[in-house]
Design a protein around this nucleic acid. Structure first.
Ligand SMILES: Nc1nc2c(ncn2[C@H]2C[C@H](O)[C@@H](COP(=O)(O)OP(=O)(O)OP(=O)(O)O)O2)c(=O)[nH]1
Ligand SMILES: [Mg+2]
Ligand SMILES: [Mg+2]
Ligand SMILES: [Zn+2]
Length: 585
DNA sequence: GCCGTTTTCGGCCCGACTGTTTTCAGTCG
């Protein structure tokens, strides 16, 4: 047993964010604070094997991580702890970080509350507000106490982010309301939703009109507003009944494109682009772009902003300051454009769908019908395997019966290529759930982890590697097992397993269920480097679930993928050939 | 703390809303 265990990349990112906040409360330079936040983000978005990176002394090769942060990271990876970290932590009590989560409380106010009243926790702050001990502090008043109490209440009930599927419903409600107002020329959802992030913090709606007042009124009249958090000339913010924040920004139509660019973000992308404008003596904000003489440059569309700055238009999904600005400048210099990203119409069919044969809600026939209605030309059923008894896993006999049913259905859907597969549990020892000859009879095999989530990293990796190397394995299902906003994925060496998948020609699933979206988009770059093929699969348990492909396509776009980089955009003939590359029968 | 095809020092995006600030700081997008 080692005395201290190395911190994982995720733990390191979380720690960097925390240290940044501690520095902020203790009054450090805002630029140093930003450096910690940027470093955390840079590391979060970097994918690969961190231990090797540290051993090779290459941590500073990550843009945004310099000598200082690299020193911390190296200590965390090699020793599991850091003196420099402890020094920072000793500046203020850790529990103050919770106070920062209260809306309206930032580092300056938290510091005053702590230093003047020795308040260290949310509970203590609540008590102090109730006893009216806050209003006497410099910079606070009676209203402050009420708004802090409200903030504490909201924090307890509605903290956290939201699934894309839920956020889209709320967003549509508000978008419809403002779009129907007369005088509204353009209206769009911006922010993380437009960038197709995997989870959504709040919803951002932009409106272009010369008549802003009725827009604000319509926005405030939408059903299900819990609280108005701000209401100004151009900006309003509410909290919905569901606990989702919605920001409204209203600008004149002439500023719609620069405002859409601003409001789409990301913040880091915006900052970098504004910096680029500034470097040439220009100014960029949400109202427009001005040259060194202060002359406004026309920007009727987003692409005009980029063009003036000598860049190709960047798809919203890629605006994360992860190298897209450099790529856009390069494309522009070669008079080239971004290759179009995949869209839903490019998907020709799917694998990995369940039916009433196991735990699905629709019959196999109903599922095939729904797939046909979506315009798909191939469809692969995959119910659970026999060990998954809790999910109605199929016995060998049932597999044969299902095959017979599929033959019957086939005759009614002559235009479709129907495939029988299985979602085989990867058993604890890495073997699959049926004898090899049974697996070989199937058209394809998805292998997934549904048990023994907490094996040590090396064991878990070896277990999955064994499954990926099985000759029948076609697809690696929901590779990390993460459930968004619920649980992290199991501990594995994903970088290694992706290279195994590439070697074995196993298709890595981009599971489109909005709770999973697994593989995470941040692995897109690595997937390309390693030559891994991905497939967008809905993991549908109902006919409605097939539509989740939309969320999978969104993630593939965020990976920057075109249709040629997704297996199930192939035509049926090519696709069958691709499946048989790895599924030996 | 990070970074560099004008820089290894001296910058680091820019603007809206709120509250108690009698002239703007803090927070947030
Ligand atoms: N220039 C600039 N733009 C910002 C800043 N903060 C936010 N924005 C822009 C870019 C963001 O995407 C957009 C909406 O802000 P949000 O706080 O809602 O962030 P976003 O939607 O990206 O993520 P979210 O899922 O809501 O946490 O506003 C900033 O500090 N500077
Ligand atoms: Mg947002
Ligand atoms: Mg927002
Ligand atoms: Zn599964």
């Amino acid at each position: 047993m080692s005395e201290t265990s190395s911190l994982s990349k995720d733990e390191i990112c979380r720690t960097l964010v925390e240290l940044g906040h501690i520095l902020e409360i203790s009054g450090s330079s805002p630029f140093k604070v930003r450096a910690f936040a940027n470093g955390a983000r840079a590391l979060e978005n970097w994918q690969g094997d961190l231990v090797s990176l540290v051993q090779d002394g290459k941590v500073t090769s990550i843009q945004g991580i310099g000598k200082g942060l690299a020193g911390l990271i190296e200590e965390w990876v090699l020793e599991g702890e850091s003196e420099a970290e402890e020094e920072i932590r000793s500046l203020v009590p850790e529990s103050l970080l919770d106070l920062l989560k209260i809306a309206g409380l930032g580092p300056k106010k938290v510091r005053v509350i702590y230093e003047e009243l020795e308040i260290e926790s949310v509970d203590e702050l609540e008590e102090a507000c109730q006893e009216n001990r806050i209003q006497s502090l410099a910079g606070f008043g009676q209203t402050s106490e009420n708004s802090i109490l409200k903030g504490i209440n909201n924090l307890r009930r509605f903290a956290g982010r939201h699934l894309v599927s839920q956020a889209r419903v709320v967003a549509q409600r508000f978008l419809d309301a403002v779009k129907s107002v007369s005088g509204v020329e353009r209206a769009e959802v911006a922010g993380s939703l437009r960038r197709n992030r995997e989870t959504i913090g709040d919803i951002d709606v932009l409106v272009g009109t010369l008549d802003p007042i009725p827009v604000r009124e319509a926005f405030m009249a939408v059903e299900g507003i819990r609280e108005v958090m701000a209401e100004g000339e151009t900006k309003s913010r509410i909290l919905s009944e569901e606990g989702v924040g919605v920001d409204l920004r209203v600008v004149e139509p002439v500023a719609f494109a620069p405002a859409l660019h601003y409001f789409t973000g990301s913040k880091e992308h915006n900052t970098r682009l504004r910096q680029r404008a500034r470097e040439r003596g220009w100014k960029l904000n949400e109202y427009g772009l001005w040259d060194e003489e202060g002359a406004a440059l026309p920007t009727p569309e987003e692409q005009d902003i980029f063009r003036h700055l000598d860049m190709a238009w960047i798809p919203p999904e890629l605006r994360e300051d992860l190298g897209e600005l450099e790529k856009a400048a390069d494309l522009h210099s070669r008079s080239a454009e971004w290759e179009p990203l995949i869209s839903e119409q490019d998907v020709k069919g799917v694998l990995h769908c369940h039916s009433t044969w196991s735990d699905g809600k629709a019959t196999l026939r109903e599922m095939v019908q729904a797939a046909s209605d979506l315009g798909w030309v191939y469809y692969g059923t995959a119910d659970h395997s026999r060990t998954a008894s809790y999910a109605g896993g199929l016995s060998i006999e049932q597999l044969a019966e299902q095959r017979a049913e599929l033959e019957e259905i086939r005759s009614d859907f002559p235009h479709m290529t129907l495939l029988q597969g299985i979602e085989s549990d990867i058993l604890a020892d890495g073997s699959l759930d049926y004898p090899d000859e049974v697996l070989a009879e199937l058209d394809y095999v998805v292998v997934s982890v549904h048990s023994s989530f907490s094996l040590p990293r090396a064991e878990q990796t070896a277990r999955i590697e064994k499954a990926l190397r099985h000759p029948a394995t076609t697809v690696w299902g929901h590779p990390t097992g993460r459930l968004l906003l619920q649980r992290d994925g199991y501990e594995i060496d994903l970088d290694h397993l992706l290279s195994v998948a590439a070697e074995e020609k196993v298709i890595v699933e981009l599971n489109a269920h909005p709770r999973r979206l697994d593989l995470d988009w941040r692995w897109g770059r690595r997937v390309l480097e390693l030559g891994v093929d991905i497939g967008i699969h809905p993991d549908a348990h109902s006919t409605q679930g097939l539509r989740d492909v939309e969320y999978g396509v969104a993630v593939a776009r965020k990976m920057g993928f075109s249709s040629s980089q997704v297996t199930n955009c192939m035509n049926p003939e090519e696709y069958l050939k691709r499946l048989n590359l790895c599924h030996k029968s």
